Amino acid sequence: MIGPIADGPVDVHAHWLPAELFGLPPGAPFGPLRDSGGELYLGEVPLSIPTRAMSDVPAILADTAAAGLGVRVLSAPPFAFPVAGPAAEYVDAFNTALAEVVASADAALAGLGLVSLDDDAVATAQLKRLAAQPGIAGVAIPPLLGGESLDRGGLRHVLGESARLGLSVLVHPMQLPRPEWRDHYLANLLGNPVETATAVGALLLGGVLDQLPDLRICFVHGGGCTPGVLGRWDHGWHTRADVRRDSSRPPGEAVRALWFDTVTHDPELLHLLTTRVGEHAVVCGSDHPFDMAQPDPVGFATAAGLDVATLAANARAFLGAGS
């Protein structure tokens, strides 16, 4: 139940995790988080960000104001997604803490909660609680889970329940390791865009939007590879029966019912994204506080020709927010 949020530009893609949850969900493949001299580490890997930037709410609010934003929407960092088994206690603790932070921020913060991904009944109960929580717009989820994506399994269940309950869904990649991406940060530089495009493709070609026309869903990092491969997807849809068997519209048409954020690191790519999905489908994002974040999300978007008022209206539409 998001309710009204503050005026001004809205950043739909920013991360927060309270220090008491740095241990991460049971079985988390990367954790735990730890502080070392004020810097944040994931296990033994330095994240190149100050610890307080992830966990300190006054620091986040100060950065929000300095970036010229009216509202920042907080979600858990992707390594806190409960992808390795039962984690209901962790999920509930995060959602409770997030609701408290949002409630104390005078409409300058909104939230996207976590949800258990191993048990559909538990997930439904958690989503119902999120839907009743002031200041919480919806849920953040990974694009892939156990070899499946958004068109089947636990992730598809979360989408269906979110649409039924009027919750927004933010899809954030996990930076999953692959041996060919072990060097040069390629698990992020290539992995994140590929994971996201995989989820977009599964959603569009899997007919999920035909089944859930009221679903509000946003993909970060400009949809990853999606803008560059939509033409290929359309060609496949028109020429192959197996590509189009589950969907009623070509991907290039259906994609305009989704939202995508502006974190593309390239004005030309942002222009291509806007051309392909429509200006109504683009929302401002930052990826705060990570090293791959866009430090001036509003300036980057406006320099690429996007209008601040339109971006803000788009974000409010995605979040289901009042004025």
Rank of each mutant, 00 (worst) to 15 (best):
residue 233 W to I: 08
residue 12 V to G: 04
residue 292 M to A: 09
residue 142 P to E: 05
residue 62 A to I: 06
residue 255 V to H: 09
residue 123 A to P: 06
residue 85 G to W: 05
residue 99 A to V: 06
residue 129 R to I: 04
residue 163 A to N: 09
residue 289 P to E: 04
residue 217 I to G: 03
residue 109 L to P: 12
residue 203 L to P: 12
residue 233 W to N: 06
residue 67 A to I: 06
residue 320 G to N: 04
residue 308 V to F: 05
residue 236 G to H: 10
residue 310 T to W: 07
residue 89 E to Y: 06
residue 109 L to Y: 09
residue 157 H to Y: 08
residue 277 V to F: 12
residue 267 P to C: 08
residue 60 I to D: 01
residue 18 P to M: 08
residue 46 P to Y: 12
residue 247 S to M: 12
residue 262 T to A: 06
residue 158 V to T: 01
residue 126 Q to V: 00
residue 207 G to R: 13
residue 265 H to Y: 10
residue 22 F to Q: 05
residue 146 G to K: 11
residue 241 A to M: 15
residue 81 F to D: 08
residue 273 L to V: 13
residue 186 L to P: 13
residue 50 P to C: 00
residue 18 P to D: 08
residue 135 G to D: 08
residue 166 G to M: 02
residue 18 P to E: 09
residue 146 G to P: 11
residue 316 R to N: 03
residue 48 S to F: 14
residue 5 I to V: 15
residue 56 D to F: 07
residue 204 L to F: 09
residue 64 T to A: 06
residue 112 L to G: 08
residue 77 P to K: 02
residue 268 E to Y: 12
residue 81 F to V: 07
residue 188 N to D: 07
residue 280 H to R: 15
residue 127 L to A: 08
residue 227 P to D: 08
residue 31 G to N: 10
residue 17 L to G: 09
residue 87 A to Y: 03
residue 90 Y to E: 09
residue 255 V to C: 14
residue 91 V to E: 04
residue 249 R to A: 15
